[in-house]
């Protein structure tokens, strides 16, 4: 079973949006997916209550105390476990990082976001001290405006991409349809399968699968 953490030392970067999108997308593809909601706000858990997606289980109220047993149970019962971590540095997040094959770090193209993303990368390195294999990681640019990139966003993006930190080729765009799934419990592909948002989520998920496939081959 693969374990994916969605982490960032900063809040409000789109962790829950990414977590729900890839979890639900892969469940719709036929994978058994558990989404562990470790965020105090429990937005993913609310999505889980209204969504009807076969193969997707949302586990609520995962905290520092129960994260390791909850994770072990989810790993035994699913193909993929996605952990939606809270913003900020926490013992909870550090525990989850220890048991993750891959960490996806959502990040907006602003200096505060990038600073906190780098902090998350360093925490992954620290967690890796106990690991027998590398904990793979990648940034993903989030809330990207379609068709427009500001001068500062371009500068920040180019600066980080030149520093050797892995970055997803696909960005998560700023789309109204991504906010709607909290209301409808349905992914964009269930509402408008040929729409731009469905294509965006599909592309991110495909890139994630590429990474997980490489890790599985190397294992």
């Amino acid at each position: 079973m693969a374990t994916l953490s969605i982490a960032s030392a900063k809040g409000g970067v789109g962790k829950t949006t990414v977590a729900i999108s890839v979890s639900a997308e892969l469940a719709l593809d036929g994978y058994r997916v558990a989404l562990l909601d470790c965020d105090l706000n429990q937005h993913a858990s609310h999505f889980g209550k209204i969504a009807e997606i076969p193969g997707l289980t949302v586990v609520s109220a995962v905290d520092e105390k129960n994260v390791l047993p909850a994770l072990r149970k989810a790993q035994a019962e699913n193909d993929l476990v996605v952990i939606d971590l809270p913003g900020g540095s926490s013992t909870l997040a550090l525990k989850a990082l220890h048991r993750s094959n891959f960490v996806l770090i959502p990040c907006q193209a602003t200096l505060p976001d990038v600073r906190d993303a780098i902090k998350t990368v360093e925490q992954i390195d620290d967690a890796q001290e106990l690991a027998s294999t590398k904990i793979a990681r990648s940034l993903i640019w989030t809330r990207v405006m379609p068709g427009f990139e500001s001068r500062s966003a371009k500068h920040v993006r180019k600066s980080i991409e030149g520093q050797g930190v892995p970055v997803f080729r696909t960005s998560m765009m700023q789309r109204a349809a991504l906010a709607e799934f909290h209301l409808t419990g349905k992914l964009p592909r269930q509402i408008e399968p040929n729409g731009a948002t469905a294509a965006n989520v599909a592309a991110i998920t495909a890139e994630l699968l590429e990474h997980l496939e490489q890790l599985a081959k190397a294992a």
């Binding site: 374990t3 905290d63 520092e64 105390k65 390791l68 047993p69 790993q75 900020g88 540095s89 926490s90 013992t91 909870l92 997040a93 550090l94 525990k95 220890h98 048991r99 993750s100 094959n101 902090k119 925490q123 620290d126 967690a127 890796q128 001290e129 106990l130 690991a131 027998s132 294999t133 590398k134 904990i135």
Partner: peptide, 27 residues
């Protein structure tokens, strides 16, 4: 999973890292 160490080892390591990072610990 990349870390096969016991939960107690992961807990202790996480707590040590958390203290170094000034991380929030709720338990």
């Amino acid at each position: 999973p990349p870390t096969t160490a016991d939960d107690s080892v992961v807990e202790a390591h996480s707590r040590r890292l958390a203290s170094e990072w000034g991380a929030v610990t709720t338990v």
